[in-house]
């Protein structure tokens, strides 16, 4: 009430009131998101181990030089890129299929949509634990199913082998996030006018042809937005890998975020860890710029 009176007395103009209203949000974002990024960069220019704060020393770009010559960093970058590209591509394909299933009218459609929200809603650590048990070499149901179907001859340690661990992590991620992708794409499908399909059917266009000439082009902006969200999410993947494999076996699933986390909080090496964080930030920034470029070039061409 006090605020109301003051507003009236001082007679705030519309724009003054506007700035007043956005101020708390900008304050939060500025203090807790933007300023810390600058701080991370500043930390990354130091040799700084949290156990020995007195030995902190400014070293310029030394941490970055060390990182770029480090095989573990190259390995983590390759893992992250592989994880991102494969899982996002699979999510897009499956997501599009599921979205089209949900876009049809049939009994039980609501149930299908609710089911799709379940993987999205549960914490990633919980879904990672579920999959860890499914993949278990002795007790896991995946081995049981595959052996019963005679697809594999004997039980495998899916998460224990450098060959299969990354694939296993990707499957778990695809399971968790495809439904979200499908819901985003479904929203895009629903705004495509039905008449377009009716007209195409009258003209004798096959279902596949309708998909290529109507659905895909009109869905392009939605697909791009969904891809942005998912690519950036996949690129910073942390909880899933942390719980499922911890980056192992032998760093074969270690992503950049997991590497940065271990450097920061296992080794307590805040200089090096911050440098890794800054690199992740820069990668994310570049990916966003590329997507924004593609998005804006698409809309100006129309």
């Amino acid at each position: 009430m006090n605020a109301v009176k003051r507003t009236r007395r001082q007679g705030l103009s519309e724009s003054q009131f506007g700035y007043l209203m956005v101020f708390p949000a900008l304050l939060c974002i500025g203090l807790i998101a933007l300023y810390p990024v600058v701080q991370t960069f500043w930390l990354s220019l130091h040799r700084l181990r949290l156990q020995f704060p007195d030995m902190t020393k400014f070293v310029g770009l030394q941490n970055y030089i060390t990182i770029f010559g480090d095989d573990r960093f190259i390995n983590a970058t390759i893992n992250t890129v592989e994880f991102t590209i494969v899982s996002v591509a699979l999510e897009l394909v499956f997501g599009l299929c599921i979205a089209m299933l949900m876009n049809k009218e049939y009994k039980g459609r609501g149930l299908m949509r609710a089911a799709a929200l379940v993987p999205w809603a549960i914490p990633t650590t919980v879904s990672a634990m579920m999959w860890k048990f499914i993949y278990n070499d002795q007790l896991g149901v995946l081995n049981d199913i595959l052996v019963r179907l005679h697809i594999i001859p004997e039980y495998k340690a899916w998460l224990g082998s450098e060959v299969t661990a990354m694939g296993a992590a990707i499957v778990a991620d695809v399971w968790k996030t495809t439904p979200f992708m499908a819901l985003l794409l479904l929203a895009g499908l629903q705004v495509i006018p039905r008449e377009l399909y009716e007209a195409a059917t009258v003209d004798g266009a096959s279902a596949w042809r309708q998909f290529i000439t109507i659905t895909l082009p009109l869905l392009r902006p939605t697909i791009l937005v969904a891809l942005i969200f998912r690519t950036l999410d996949a690129f910073r993947v942390f909880d899933l890998v942390y719980v499922l494999t911890g980056g192992g076996p032998g760093n074969s699933t270690e992503t950049l975020s997991v590497y940065a986390y271990k450097t920061l909080f296992r080794n307590m090496d805040f200089g090096m860890g911050s440098a890794l964080s800054v690199i992740i930030f820069v990668f994310i920034f570049i990916i966003s710029l590329i997507y924004i470029r593609i998005l804006s070039s698409g809309s100006s061409a129309e």
């Binding site: 810390p36 805040f270 911050s274 930030f281």
Partner: peptide, 21 residues
């Protein structure tokens, strides 16, 4: 746009200074 940009922020990029804070 700023708000949208923040939604893309990787948590790991700011966790070290926030931890010290």
């Amino acid at each position: 746009s700023l708000v949208l940009a923040v939604s893309m922020f990787p948590g790991i990029a700011i966790v070290s200074p926030l931890y010290i804070f």
